[in-house]
Simulated assay, not measured.
Amino acid sequence: MTDPGTLQLGLDTFGDITHGVDGEPLTHAQTIRNVVDEAVLADEVGLSFFGVGEHHRREFAVSSPEVVLAAAAARTRSIHLGTAVTVLSSDDPVRLFERFATLDAISNGRAEVILGRGSFIESFPLFGYELSDYEVLFEEKLDLFTALMKEQPVTWQGSTRAPLNGADVFPKTENGLTAWIGVGGSPESVVRAARHGLGLMLAIIGGAPERFRPFVDLYHRSLDALGMPALPVGVHSPGHIADTDQQAWDEAYPGFEALHNTIGRERGWPTYNRLRFQHDVGPEGSVYAGSPETVARKIAGTARALGLTRFDMKFSTGTLSHEKMMRSIELYGTQVVPRVHELLASS
Rank of each mutant, 00 (worst) to 15 (best):
L218R: 10
E44I: 00
K298P: 04
N261A: 13
L218S: 01
F97Q: 05
S321V: 05
P238A: 11
T6S: 14
G20N: 11
N34W: 01
F120D: 13
P283Y: 05
A73T: 06
G239P: 00
L218K: 03
A167V: 12
V337S: 07
V183R: 02
R274E: 14
A42C: 04
E284G: 07
R327Y: 01
D245K: 04
A225D: 14
G158I: 03
V295W: 04
M325E: 12
H236Y: 10
T160G: 03
S222P: 04
S123E: 13
L231A: 12
F277W: 14
E174N: 14
G166T: 01
M149Y: 00
D312K: 01
P153L: 11
P4K: 03
D217N: 11
L198I: 04
L202C: 10
P292L: 08
H240G: 05
S90L: 03
V87Q: 13
M326D: 07
G82H: 06
E44M: 00
E257F: 01
P171C: 11
R221S: 14
V36W: 09
Q8F: 00
G333M: 09
D104Q: 03
S316I: 00
F145R: 02
A29S: 12
P153V: 10
G197K: 03
R77W: 03
T18D: 12
G264S: 13
S90H: 08
V62K: 07
P4H: 13
M326N: 05
D168N: 10
E210P: 02
E98K: 02
S321F: 02
L177H: 06
H322P: 02
L11E: 09
K314N: 15
V35Q: 10
D245W: 08
A71H: 13
M1W: 12
V287T: 14
L26A: 11
A230N: 09
E135K: 11
S291G: 08
A225R: 12
E251I: 12
A303N: 07
F170G: 04
G116A: 05
E44W: 00
E139C: 01
Q152M: 10
S346R: 12
H341A: 08
L320Q: 14
A105L: 15
H80K: 14
V190D: 05
L137N: 06
E342N: 02
Q278P: 00
H196L: 06
P187G: 06
H55K: 02
F97Y: 15
F127G: 04
S346M: 07
V36Q: 11
E54L: 02
E122F: 02
L88D: 04
F50N: 09
F100E: 05
V191N: 00
Q246C: 03
